[in-house]
């Protein structure tokens, strides 16, 4: 087993064997002679939010499409809700939600009409624990489209359409939800509302969420766990904090004394600050400790990978975690 896996710090039900929603083992994908996925490994636990990060062409979309059952893999074991997506029946599909990036489909439909229609297909898969589909009015207010419920889809703004995409994705009250770059084109306000929606989904509905994004800030805010995919492999797997600590153990300490500014990089920020106070006490002002941000972590990892040291990067990482 790789050390990357051990880094994972599932926040919920880590021990429960049936708490697994998505399991990916040695996933490989090859187009012609190009290996897009090169042994991807990860596990998502029920109710967990996972963000898949990576540079363009790293295989994020391919991975998510394999899990959705829209793409056949070349090799490896994949299971979503205990089922191999390559052989998923309609009853399996009813438990998934997929947020697609819409363009101009269903332009003539009205928002409430479309959600009501798409929900009908899920009614046969309703269970006492999980009533399907969602009530349309409740769903519309949940994504903040109340004022637009009777509007034609083609009249919605870009952000409103994306919220409708999310509503369509969750109309069947999914147990696992896939979002491929959900907030591309959102303004900051819409983004904040979307984040609240995702938090509510994972907290209240116990929905497992796998999303891809380019936005590191978003990944940090939304995800319980972050997977960094590059060159067809998971380079890192852990919470934003854990990743930052593992990749760059250094923290930056800034302070001022007698109006003069100081900066110091250290691995043991707490210890350093303790000594600082022991030595100078009251003289210390403007104290600030900055850990490496997720962005620093990501840049370090991807840079190492892209400068042709992917193996080395992965190795170092394993070394650190063990």
């Amino acid at each position: 087993m790789t050390g990357v896996r051990e880094l994972s710090e599932p926040t919920r039900n880590p021990e429960a064997p049936d708490g697994t929603a998505i399991e990916v083992h040695d996933l490989r994908m090859r187009y012609g002679s190009v290996d897009v996925l090169n042994g991807v490994e990860f596990t998502a636990y029920r109710g967990e939010v996972l963000a898949l990060l990576g540079p363009n062409g790293a295989g994020k979309t391919t991975t998510i499409e394999i899990l959705e059952g829209f793409r056949m893999r070349s090799a490896g074991d994949v299971s979503v809700l205990g089922v191999d997506p390559a052989h998923g029946k309609e009853s399996w599909r009813a438990r998934l939600g997929i947020v697609l990036q819409s363009w101009r489909d269903h332009g003539k439909w009205r928002v409430a009409e479309l959600l009501g229609h798409l929900g009908r297909y899920y009614a046969a898969y309703s269970t006492p624990e999980r009533r399907r589909p969602h009530d349309v009015d409740e769903l519309i207010s949940r994504v903040g489209l109340e004022e637009h419920a009777s509007k034609k889809v083609s009249m919605l703004s870009g952000g409103q359409r994306r919220r409708l995409d999310v509503a369509i994705g969750i109309v069947g009250r999914p147990e696992v939800l896939f979002l491929d770059e959900p907030t591309a084109g959102f303004d900051p306000h819409a983004r904040r509302e979307f984040h609240d929606l995702v938090h509510r989904l994972s907290d209240l509905e116990d929905t497992t969420i796998l999303l891809t994004t380019h936005d590191l800030d978003e990944a940090e805010k939304l995800a319980d766990r972050i997977l960094i995919l590059a060159g067809g492999r998971i380079l890192a797997n852990g919470s934003a904090d854990a990743l930052a600590k593992q990749v760059s153990g250094q923290a930056e300490v800034r302070w001022s004394r007698h109006g003069e500014l100081f900066v110091h990089s250290t691995e043991d920020a707490t210890g350093f600050v303790r000594e600082l106070f022991a030595q100078y006490g009251e003289e210390i002002a403007d104290l600030e400790v900055r850990r490496a941000s997720l962005e620093d972590t990501y840049m370090t990892l991807v840079h190492e990978f892209e400068s042709g040291r992917s193996e080395a990067a992965a190795q170092t990482f394993e070394g650190v975690t063990r």
Binding site: E68, F70, E90, S91, R93, A94, L96, I98, L100, Q101, S102, W103, R104, D105, H106, L118, Y121, Y122, A124, Y125, I168, G172
Partner: peptide, 20 residues
């Protein structure tokens, strides 16, 4: 037209959607 604009993909993403 509906394959290009994604209507068909939506149908594929819901249970028995292609039949409908």
């Amino acid at each position: 037209v509906e394959r290009e604009d994604g209507t068909l993909l939506r149908a594929k993403a819901i249970p028995n959607g292609m039949l409908g």
